[in-house]
Design a binder for these strands. Structure first.
Lengths: 351, 351
DNA sequence: ATGAAAGCGCTAACAC
DNA sequence: GTGTTAGCGCTTTCAT
C-alpha cells in the first residue's frame, strides 16, 4: 500500500462545506438543542459524507477532562491480573472511559516514576493501581501520593489511612478454607503459603492461623512452608510437610497452581486424595474443576474487583469535578470470596 | 480528602517564573541544543521545583502524532489473549508507545464501529487487532479498512491480500502433534477440535488431516469431534470418540483445557494414559506440565506474537511518517510453534 | 541564543 | 438559532 493516507476531516472543513460557522457544527456534534432541525440535518449529512470524526485530544485539552483512566498492572501472563483487567476493561467501557494500559515488567517495579509521569502527561482523569502489594513496592508511592493531581484507587493491599482501596478479603478466604477442613474432622492441617513478602499470601496465612486458633487446634511452625505460587513449589512444599509432619491429613494451599503441584505429588506417590490427604486451594482457576481429583478451592471474583475499582475511581473523579466533594472520600472496599467444595477435600461425599 | 487538587503547571508559568519566553522553556523540555547552558540550568531547576509535566495532549495535537497504539482484544479471562497482550504491552513500553486498550464483550463483536471510532478519535497512531478470527467477524472490517487513517496489524488470522497479519502457524502445530503420535506407532488417532467457526481450530484440524494423509493412514469422519475449547467439551469429546472408535489409541486435542478434560475422563474411567490413550494438547498452558500425567502439547509463543505485532505496526507508522513508503508494506508473518513431549504421549519413555 | 507570531482542532462565553 | 472572539498548552516558523 504505497498511498499516503488522507488527513482527517476537521470541523472547519465541515463548516465550510455546509456554509455555516464552526460553532454550529460543533453544536450538532455535541447534540446541543439550540440548532435548527433543518440545519442539523444538513450538517449531519455532510459529516457523514466527509467522514468527520471529532478529535478527542483537542476536546480534552479544552475541557480538562480526557475521559481516560490509567491502569497499571503486572504479570498479565498470570490468570489473576488478567481476570482483574478484564473486569476493569468491561466496566470502563460501560462507563464510557477509555483505558491507558501500563504493564510493569515485574512486581518489584522501579520504573514507577516515569510510568506515572507518562500517565499524567497524557492527562488521565484517574488511575487504577492494579498491582499486588509485594515487599515495599507501595512505599515509593507514599511520598508522591499527596502531589498526585488525580484520584487513585489501589487494588488488593492492606488498608492505609487516606487511601482508596478495593481488595479481596484474603484472610476470610483462608479462614473459610481452614474451617472447611476442620469441619471435615481434620486436625493436622498444613499450609503452603505464597511468597510471604506478598500481602495476599500473609493474609491467607493469617486466616489459616486464626481458624486453627479459634478451633483450639494446636499449631506449630512445621505445619507451614513457604512456596512461590508455582506448581513446582507446591510439589516441594508438600514433600517437606509430609516429611516433617507424618500425621498430616490435610493441607490448605495458597493458590491453585501450587495445589495442582500437591495433587501431582499425590498422583506420583500413590497418595490418595482426599482419603489420605485433603487439599484446598485458592483462586478457583477454570482448570481446578477438572483436576484429578477436582479441587476444592476459594473462589474470588476478580472481575468484580476490577469493576468496583473503576466505579470507585470514577465516583471520585465525578465528585471532585462537580465541586461536590462529598461521596468521593477514600474508603476500603472488601470483596468476599466463597468456598467451592469439590472432591479433593470431601471425605464423606459422593465421588 | 476534601481539598481541591491544584491544576497542573504549564509552560507559561514556568516561563514567567524563569523570566524567559515560553519558547525557551519548550526548547529545554525537548532537549534542543540551542539553549545557553546557563539558561538551561535555571529553567531546569524551576521545572523541577514547580513540578512541571508537559501536556502530551497539546503536543500530540500539534505534532499529529500521539505515540499511542490502540489494542483491541477479547476474552482476557483466558490465558491466550492475556499472554498476547502481555507481549504487546512489554514491547510497546520498550518502543515508547502507550497503549489504549479496548476489550470486546465477546468474540462476535458487533460494536466494532463505535470502538474503532473512539480509538481513531483519540488519534492513535496505529491499531493492533488482537482478536481471534471467528465466523465472519473479519468481514465487517473489509468495508472499512481502506478508509482507515492509520495502519492496522491483525493477529492470528488467515492471510488476506493487502492486510498486515501476524499469526501462529497453527497448521504446523497440528501437524507436529499428529506426526509425534504417528512416530509413537499410533495409527488410530482421533482429534477433538475447537469450535470450527474459529480459524485457528480449522487450521489445527487441517494439520492433523495432512499429517495422517502424508503417513498414508486412513482417516474417517468419526475420528473427529468438535469441542468448544472447554474442559467439559473435552470430556464429552473423548467419550464420543471412544464409543465410536473402539480401537482408538491416541488423540490430538485442540487445546490444553480440553486435553485436561480428556485426562480427567481417563482418571475417572480407569483409562491409563499414555498406555491406553496417548494425549497431545495445544497451547502449553503453565499448568500442563503438572497434569496427571504431564501433558504433551504444542507450545506457541504468544508473548512473541504480541511483540512482533507492535514492531510491525510501528514499522509501518514510521515508514508512512517519514514519506518513506518502503519497508511498510503488508506482510504475513508466521510464528512457528514447538512440540513439548511429556508423559501423556510417551509410550516408551521413562515415567 | 532567544523571542514573537501563528495556529493545531476544538469549545466556552458572549454577542446578535 | 447562529456567529464572533478568545484561548486550552503546546510547537513551528521566522525574525532578531
Amino acid at each position: 500500500m504505497a498511498t499516503k493516507r488522507k488527513p482527517p476531516t476537521t470541523l472547519k472543513q465541515v463548516a465550510k462545506e455546509a456554509g455555516v460557522s464552526i460553532q454550529t457544527v460543533s453544536r450538532v456534534v455535541n447534540e446541543r438543542p439550540d440548532v435548527a432541525p433543518e440545519t442539523r440535518e444538513r450538517v449531519l449529512a455532510i459529516i457523514e459524507r466527509m467522514g468527520y470524526r471529532p478529535n478527542v485530544l483537542a476536546r480534552s485539552l479544552i475541557r480538562r477532562r480526557s475521559h481516560t483512566l490509567g491502569v497499571v498492572t503486572a504479570g498479565l501472563m498470570y490468570t489473576g491480573p488478567s481476570r482483574t483487567l478484564n473486569g476493569v476493561a468491561s466496566q470502563a467501557q460501560r462507563m464510557n472511559y477509555t483505558l491507558l494500559l501500563k504493564e510493569l515488567p515485574d512486581f518489584g517495579g522501579y520504573t514507577i516514576q516515569s510510568l506515572l509521569d507518562d500517565l499524567l502527561a497524557r492527562q488521565v482523569d484517574g488511575i487504577i493501581w492494579a498491582i499486588a502489594e509485594v515487599g515495599g513496592n507501595r512505599e515509593e508511592f507514599v511520598s508522591q501520593l499527596s502531589y498526585l493531581p488525580v484520584p487513585v484507587v489501589f487494588l488488593t493491599m492492606a488498608p492505609r489511612e487516606g487511601w482508596h482501596i478495593v481488595a479481596i478479603d484474603n484472610e476470610a478466604g483462608g479462614r473459610m478454607a481452614t474451617e472447611h477442613l476442620l469441619a471435615q474432622g481434620h486436625r493436622r492441617i498444613g499450609h503452603i503459603t505464597g511468597p510471604l513478602d506478598w500481602w495476599e499470601a500473609r493474609e491467607r496465612k493469617a486466616g489459616w492461623e486464626k481458624a486453627l486458633a479459634a478451633a483450639g487446634v494446636p499449631q506449630s511452625p512445621e505445619l507451614c512452608v513457604e512456596g512461590d505460587w508455582s506448581s513446582i513449589s507446591g510439589i516441594e512444599g508438600i514433600a517437606h510437610l509430609r516429611a516433617r509432619v507424618p500425621d498430616l491429613t490435610a493441607v490448605f494451599v495458597g493458590n491453585d497452581q501450587m495445589a495442582l503441584g500437591v495433587l501431582h505429588y499425590a498422583y506420583q506417590h500413590g497418595v490418595r486424595s482426599p482419603q489420605d490427604l485433603a487439599v484446598v486451594g485458592f483462586d478457583d482457576i477454570t482448570e481446578a474443576a477438572f483436576f484429578s481429583p477436582p479441587l476444592t478451592t476459594i473462589h474470588h471474583d476478580l472481575h468484580r474487583l476490577g469493576c468496583t475499582a473503576v466505579q470507585e475511581v470514577v465516583r471520585r473523579i465525578e465528585a471532585e469535578q462537580g465541586d461536590n466533594l462529598v461521596g468521593g472520600d477514600p474508603r476500603y472496599a472488601h470483596i468476599q470470596p466463597t468456598l467451592i467444595v469439590r472432591e479433593s477435600s470431601a471425605l464423606q461425599s459422593a465421588a
